[in-house]
Design a protein around this nucleic acid. Structure first.
Lengths: 192, 192, 192, 192
DNA sequence: CATGAATGAGGGTTCATTCAT
DNA sequence: TATGAATGAACCCTCATTCAT
C-alpha cells in the first residue's frame, strides 16, 4: 500500500520526535517509520533532514510571531496587550505542547538560521514595551530587558509544565502570569 | 611530551565546544584536538562521551544548586535572598558565559538523567518562595509557579545576552532583575 | 499536453547527458527532465536505464559498423578504402560530437555486452587490411595490430578535439589522417 | 586482528577494481573488502572515494608524464626518442595492465581535475614532435595532431590487447609500433 | 600509560524502478 | 496511457570506541 499525505504525516511525526529527543537525537529512519512512510518519500518534500527541521521551526516560529504581532497591533493599553499575548502563549502551549517544546529545544540550533524579517515573537513583545514607554504607561526601561523578562516568565513556566513541575492547562494561569509579567517590567523600571 | 592535567584540559575544551555547538554537534576527535590530548586519553577519565557530558553538566548544575542553597539558608528577608540569588546568577554568567550556555543548552537532554537530591538550583529558589509565604512576606502562590517566574526572568535575560540582544556584564543589571523578579512573584499573587 | 515522440526526445537527451557526464553520472530523473517527459514514460520504451544505455550504444555502434562495412565492400584500392573510412569517421564526428563522445566513453562499459555479429567498426577496417595483404598492396602485418593503428589515429584525434586540443571540423583533416593511417600500417610492416 | 599497511592494500585493490569496473562501478565496501580493511580505515588515508580515485589517477598519470619527459629530454634524433617513448608505454602496459586500463578508463572523468603543470604524457610527445620540426627532421605538422596520432597508435594497441584482440606482451611489438608512429607523423606532413 | 590508526554500526541521502491515480 | 510520488536498497561517510604499539 502506498502512503499518501506524506508531508502532513512527516511533519507531525517529526515534531513529536524532535520535541521528545531533539533534532540530532532522531534519525530519518525513525521519522519515516513513525509517519508510516518510506525514507525516500521524505526527500520529495524536504531536501534534507536539516531543511525539514528548519522549515518546521521557521513555520511555527514565524506563525507565532505573526499572531503576536497582530495582537500587539491593536490599540490597547499596555496591560491589555501583554495579557493577550501571555494568554496567547498559554493557549498555544495547551493546544500543542510538543510543538512548543520543539520550539524551545530547537531555538538554540535553528534560530540563527532564520532570516529575521521582524517576525520574531520577541519583536512583538518588544514593540509593546516600547509603545508603553512612549505612551508613558510605564517607566522607561531597556526594551530588550523588558521583553526578556516577559518572555522568560512565560517560557519558563511552560518549561516547568513540560518537566512536570506544574499541572493542568496553562490558560487558567494566564491572568496571573500576565500580572507577573507586567509587574516585572514595572519593577525593572523602579529606581528606588 | 606527556600530557598532564588531561582532565582539566578536556573539561575546559568540552564545555567550550558543547556550549558553542551542542553535545551532539561536537565529536570526540574535536574535543581531544582542542584539549591537545589523544582521543584515547579521554577514555581514562570518562567511560564515554555521554558520561563526559553528563558529568560536566551535573557538576555545574549541582554546584550552582549548592551555592544557591547556601545563599538561601541565610536568615534574611525574601527580597534580600532573591536579590542575592539573582546577583549570584549574574555573576556566574559573567564569569563563565560558555558554562552558562552549556547548561542552558544541555538541560533538556541531561537534566532528566540527574538523580535529583534537592540540589537543583530551582529548589533553592522554590524554598525561598515557600519560606516567604510561610513568613507572610508575600501572598500565597504556587511555589513552582513562583520559582518559574524568577528563573525565567534571569535565564531569559542571560539568553538574550548570549544572542547579542543585551550588552555588557549582567552583574550591573542584577538589582533591576531582582526587583523584577520580586515584583513578578508579588504580581502572581495579586488577586484583584 | 500529451507528449509525443517520447522515444526520440529521450534518446536525444540521454545521448547528450551520457556524453557529458557518463552513464553513471546521469540519473533517470535528469534524462526525463531534459527530454520533457515523465520518468515513468521512459519505461514504456526501455525496460531499464541499463537497457537504454545499451541500446543507444549498440545502435550507434552497429550503424557505424555497417556504414564502414559498406564502404569497405567497394572494390577499391586499400588507400582509397582507408581514406573513405577515415573521412567517414571525421564526418560522423563533425555531425554529432556528442554521440561520438558517448561511444568513446561508453565503449569500455557497454562493448562487452554487444553480441558481436561482425558489425563492429573495427571489423570493417580489419577486413580492409586483410584484403590489402591478400592483394599484396601492403606488406603482411597482424591485421588486429593494423586496425588498432588506424583506429587509434582517428579516435585519438577525435578525443583531442573533444578536449579542446584541436579546433575546427575534422573533415578537413581527413586526408592527412588517412595518409597517416596508411603510412602507419605500412610502417608496421617494415622490417628493416 | 587489526589491519596494517592500509594505504598500500587499498591502493592496490582500488586500482584493480577501478580498472575492472570503473570508478562508479565499485563501492567503497568492495574496495575495503578486497583490501582486507574496514571501510572506515580508508578515510584515514583519503578524504573521500573521489579523492582516492583522483590521487591514484594523478599519481600514475604524472609519473608517466615525468618518465616520458625524461626520455624526451635526451638529445637524440626524433626516431630514437619516439621509439624509446613507445617502448616505455609498452613496458608500462606489460608491467601493470590494470593500472594502464584504469588510466584509460578514468581519463575522461579525472583528467579535467588535474592541474596540469606540463606533466601530461602527451606533453612530452608533443615536445618531441615540435623539436623534430624545429630540427627539420620531419615536415612541419600541427604538433597536437602529431602527438594525437602517436598516442592513438600506442593506446589503441593497448586497448586491443585489453580486449583480447592481441596476445602476448606488448614490448616485442614496440619497434613495429614505433615505426608505425613515426611513419604516421611523416604521412601527416606529406602534402602530395 | 599515552597514542592515534582501525573498527564497524549507523547516519543521511540518492535513485532506478514501481504503481495508484 | 501518462504521470510523478512512493518505494527501499544501496551508497558514501562519520564517529564513538577499541586496542596494538
Amino acid at each position: 500500500m502506498r502512503a499518501t499525505h506524506v508531508k502532513e504525516k512527516v511533519d507531525h511525526a517529526a515534531i513529536a520526535l524532535f520535541a521528545a529527543r531533539g533534532v540530532d537525537g532522531v534519525s530519518i529512519a525513525e521519522i519515516a517509520a513513525a509517519a508510516g512512510v518510506a525514507q525516500g518519500a521524505l526527500y520529495r518534500h524536504y531536501r534534507s533532514k536539516d531543511e525539514l527541521a528548519a522549515r518546521l521551526f521557521a513555520d511555527a516560529y514565524c506563525r507565532t510571531g505573526a499572531e503576536l504581532a497582530e495582537i500587539g497591533a491593536a490599540r490597547q493599553p499596555f496591560e491589555v496587550r501583554i495579557t493577550a499575548m501571555v494568554a496567547h502563549f498559554c493557549a498555544l502551549y495547551d493546544r500543542d505542547p510538543a510543538l512548543f517544546r520543539f520550539m524551545l529545544l530547537a531555538q538554540h540550533e535553528l534560530l540563527p538560521a532564520i532570516d529575521d524579517g521582524g517576525v520574531a515573537p520577541v519583536a512583538a513583545i518588544e514593540a509593546a514595551v516600547a509603545d508603553a514607554i512612549a505612551a508613558r504607561e510605564i517607566a522607561p526601561v531597556d526594551t530588550a530587558e523588558g521583553s526578556a523578562v516577559i518572555m522568560g516568565i512565560v517560557l519558563q513556566t511552560a518549561l516547568f509544565h513540560l518537566y512536570g513541575r506544574l499541572d493542568g492547562p496553562l490558560v487558567p494561569r494566564a491572568l496571573a502570569l500576565a500580572r507577573a509579567a507586567i509587574a516585572a517590567v514595572q519593577g525593572l523600571g523602579d529606581s528606588r
